[in-house]
Simulated assay, not measured.
Amino acid sequence: MAEPTVSAVILAGGRGRRMGYQDKGLVECNGQPLVAHVMAAIAPCVGDIAINANRNLDEYGRLSRPVIKDRHPDYPGPLAGIAAGLDWCPTEALFVVPCDTPGIHGCCVERLRAALDGAEIAVAHDGHRLQPLHALVRRRCRDSLTRFLAAGGRRVDQWIETLDWRQADCSDRPEMFFNINSPEALHD
């Protein structure tokens, strides 16, 4: 099967509770917002990039266009950001990545693309566990996700289990998935 054309959505729509309610994507790391690190790493491997955000839209807009909001109110979680990304997605497949993993590498996209084959979604595995917010999702999964959210579903891993999915081995690069969840983690 031919490799799909890929766009990306960077998930930056959360409340940032563990980061003291700061907008995590805009928190600086080595002189740049976290989201800028992610954008730079994935840009060579994808076409269009959107940022999913629910606040500070003008600031995100200076970094990338488009900036897309959740269609669901009250910060229902990353699935709402994935749904917004699938609503926007101009290509056959959407790379989903959180804004708080500045060590992400383009090889993640390539491994997910290779693993996807005929499946609906490919999910990265770091050698210890699945990384469900590092995934390549076919645009055709939008209706499935809409139904899952409408039924009250909120957990990414539970939605993935409803799909035909594959695992991408990223066990040789587990540092790609280290996420910045607190101000202290910025200095680790």
Rank of each mutant, 00 (worst) to 15 (best):
Cys89Ala: 08
Val96Cys: 07
Leu133Asp: 15
Ala41Cys: 11
Pro98Phe: 07
Gly47Pro: 10
Ala135Phe: 08
Asn52Asp: 12
Thr101Met: 13
Thr91Ser: 13
Arg62Tyr: 11
Lys24Arg: 14
Val35Phe: 01
Gly127His: 08
Pro78Gly: 15
His128Gln: 14
Ala12Leu: 01
Asn52Trp: 14
Gln32Asp: 13
Gly13Met: 02
Arg17Ile: 12
Asp100Asn: 15
Ile104Ala: 14
Ala122Gly: 01
Val97Thr: 13
Ile49Ala: 10
Val97His: 10
Thr91Gln: 08
Arg17Phe: 11
Ile82Trp: 04
Asp87Lys: 05
Glu92Thr: 09
Pro102Asp: 14
Glu28Gly: 03
Asp74Pro: 04
Ala12Pro: 00
Tyr75Ser: 00
Ala36Leu: 11
Leu112Val: 04
Pro44Met: 04
Val137Pro: 02
His105Val: 14
Val96Glu: 03
Trp88Cys: 06
Arg55Ser: 07
Asn54Val: 01
Asp48Tyr: 10
Ala36Asp: 10
Ala50Gly: 04
Asn30Tyr: 14
Leu26Tyr: 02
Pro33Gln: 04
Asn30Ile: 05
Asp100Val: 07
Pro76Val: 11
Ile51Cys: 09
Pro73Thr: 01
Val46Met: 11
Asp48Arg: 13
Cys141Tyr: 00
Lys69Asn: 12
Gly14Ser: 01
Leu136Gln: 00
Thr146Tyr: 09
Arg129Ser: 14
Ile82Pro: 00
Ile51His: 05
Leu136Arg: 02
Gly106Thr: 10
Arg139Pro: 00
Met19Gln: 10
Asp23Ala: 06
Asp58Leu: 08
Ala41Met: 11
Tyr75Val: 01
His134Met: 13
Thr146Lys: 11
Arg140Tyr: 01
Phe95Tyr: 09
Gly25Phe: 01
Gly81Ser: 08
Leu145Phe: 02
Leu34Pro: 03
Val27Glu: 01
Arg62Ser: 11
Ala80Trp: 06
Leu79Tyr: 11
Arg55Tyr: 03
Pro73Val: 06
Val27Trp: 03
Ala53Glu: 06
Tyr21Arg: 07
Gly13Gln: 07
Asn54Gly: 05
Val46Asp: 10
Gly106Val: 09
Glu28Tyr: 06
Ile49Tyr: 12
Arg140Met: 04
Val137Trp: 09
Ala53Met: 05
Cys45Arg: 15
Gln131Ser: 08
Ile68Arg: 05
Ile121Asp: 08
Pro66Thr: 12
Tyr21Gln: 02
Ala135Asn: 09
Val96Trp: 03
Ala114Pro: 03
Asp100Tyr: 05
His128Ala: 12
Pro33Ile: 07
Cys99Leu: 00
Ala151Asp: 09
Gly81Trp: 05
Ala150Trp: 05
Glu59His: 06
Arg113Ile: 12
Arg71Glu: 14
Pro98Ala: 06
His105Glu: 15
Ser144Thr: 06
